[in-house]
Deep mutational scan, measured.
Amino acid sequence: DHDVVPEDKFQETLHLKEKEGCPQAFHALLSWLLTQDSTAILDFWRVLFKDYNLERYGRLQPILDSFPKDVDLSQPRKGRKPPAVPKALVPPPRLPTKRKASEEARAAAPAALTPRGTASPGSQLKAKPPKKPESSAEQQRLPLGNGIQTMSASVQRAVAMSSGDVPGARGAVEGILIQQVFESGGSKKCIQVGGEFYTPSKFEDSGSGKNKARSSSGPKPLVRAKGAQGAAPGGGEARLGQQGSVPAPLALPSDPQLHQKNEDECAVCRDGGELICCDGCPRAFHLACLSPPLREIPSGTWRCSSCLQATVQEVQPRAEEPRPQEPPVETPLPPGLRSAGEEVRGPPGEPLAGMDTTLVYKHLPAPPSAAPLPGLDSSALHPLLCVGPEGQQNLAPGARCGVCGDGTDVLRCTHCAAAFHWRCHFPAGTSRPGTGLRCRSCSGDVTPAPVEGVLAPSPARLAPGPAKDDTASHEPALHRDDLESLLSEHTFDGILQWAIQSMARPAAPFPS
């Protein structure tokens, strides 16, 4: 592969990997390779389809078979030569091979799209000592099968071997295949498990690692696999990028399955594409389908809103127990993405979901129960707010008499603000006073009005108090039968009158 990737590009890729991570280095090298001529790309395919690569990765054979028959990708048995050289000459001794072996032994695996480039050397060096003999053996194999790289107009793939297949390693990572398949204008990513390549439709969760975000852009890794992070704060999961590491605690105790298979379609829109997988259930989501939507993949363990709600429900009964003089119970939860139609709101002032922060849900004790107040519409209280300059209440639009249902020339009671006709409430011909108009209920007259088809109010509507207090003497005590009587009149003013009279009014101040 030294004929494909020059030394300066190799060093530039290593520097970019240390600065921005393996995914960015892979993407940059792939983009550079696509700008080369067809001879360089053909050399790339020839390096990929060597015999030892085909033996190690069985899924490469179907890719090789898909090439046109007129494309010669065979390799000479006596060494490598550029395709432009007409004579089959043995190339001179390859010093770059020693360079590659020494550099890969030092860096474990470079971040390139060629056999030198995919593992994360920093994480491997940190986690190597417990498994040094086995990992050293794996390093000797890295130059042979560490990076199976493929690129063409139909298929483009980048393979990364790992030393996680050490025997006896619980939940060992089998390997990473960062794979971009450009077929019919689409893009897919796969993962390699035990020599087999699994596409998103049959993606397997190998051991402790999972394909957290099938994305090839942005600074985030394709698999949430930063070796420096180790395990999740809650004892979460091992990262795919942690090559040759000792077994780590796999999943939280509440995880239903340690080796679950995540779905390959969004649980909201039932469509495929780039998904984020939940650590607590097999569901996966688009970032845009979450509520609120996320802009980037959160670091650490992530769970959907259903799993978060289940966790909150487990903690909430203990938080609601009476604990005198104790601060509110704080339950730190990872930043969760909410699927459509589901929402768990945190306290005000918290950062938005999706940031690399930890939301704190506070379970406050329930407030003391209070008697429910009568629910009145805002339009129902409008007549009470229509007060004239002299303190006389004006008529609201649409006000109707509670007896006849007519809204023409209605009066407004100064005591309960109900609309009424003087002739309907006082049919006996009582003279109307000039000021202080009161309806039949507030004036103490319980004589029913002779209106055909309208039920008369119940005599129990009024329960006047002592006459010594004029204001308190007109406080009506309405009961269920009074409400039914008012409802039978089918008037809004009657219902409003009952609601206003049912509310307690402050006692009249004593004259000074």
Rank of each mutant, 00 (worst) to 15 (best):
K468G: 09
L376S: 13
C442P: 01
A418D: 05
E343R: 11
T408Q: 14
A248F: 15
P511R: 05
L352N: 06
T471C: 12
A463P: 08
S458G: 07
A467G: 07
M503I: 13
C404W: 02
P298A: 13
A288L: 09
H286D: 13
C289G: 13
R505K: 12
D409W: 01
A319H: 08
T357A: 06
V344F: 12
T408C: 13
C304Y: 11
R345G: 09
V329R: 12
A366K: 07
C281D: 09
L455H: 03
R338D: 10
L333Q: 08
P374V: 13
R303G: 14
R432T: 00
Q260M: 07
A418S: 04
H259Q: 04
H286T: 14
W422Y: 10
Q497T: 11
L275V: 12
A456W: 08
L455S: 08
H363F: 12
D482P: 06
L287Q: 08
L250R: 10
A460N: 10
S379D: 06
V451I: 14
L258V: 10
Q260V: 09
R323T: 07
L308R: 12
G391F: 15
T311F: 13
Q497S: 05
A371L: 13
C304K: 13
G453E: 05
T408E: 06
L385S: 08
P327K: 06
C386L: 14
D255M: 14
A467Q: 14
E321Y: 14
G300W: 15
K261W: 00
P298M: 14
Q242T: 11
L437E: 05
P383G: 09
G375E: 11
E314I: 12
A504V: 08
P372E: 06
P459I: 12
G429W: 08
R432Q: 04
H425I: 01
G280T: 06
T357K: 11
R318M: 11
A267S: 09
H382W: 06
P249L: 14
I297Y: 05
P334R: 11
P317F: 13
C401G: 02
D406L: 05
V329F: 10
P506L: 01
P427M: 12
R440T: 11
A380G: 12
E489L: 00
G388A: 08
P397I: 13
P347W: 14
H490I: 03
T414N: 13
R270M: 13
S378W: 14
P324Y: 14
P328M: 14
L376T: 10
L275C: 14
G349D: 08
P298W: 13
L486Y: 11
V446W: 11
L275R: 09
P464Y: 11
R345I: 07
A477Y: 08
Y361H: 04
A267W: 13
G444N: 12
K362L: 14
V315A: 11
R318N: 15
P506T: 09
P457N: 06
R440L: 14
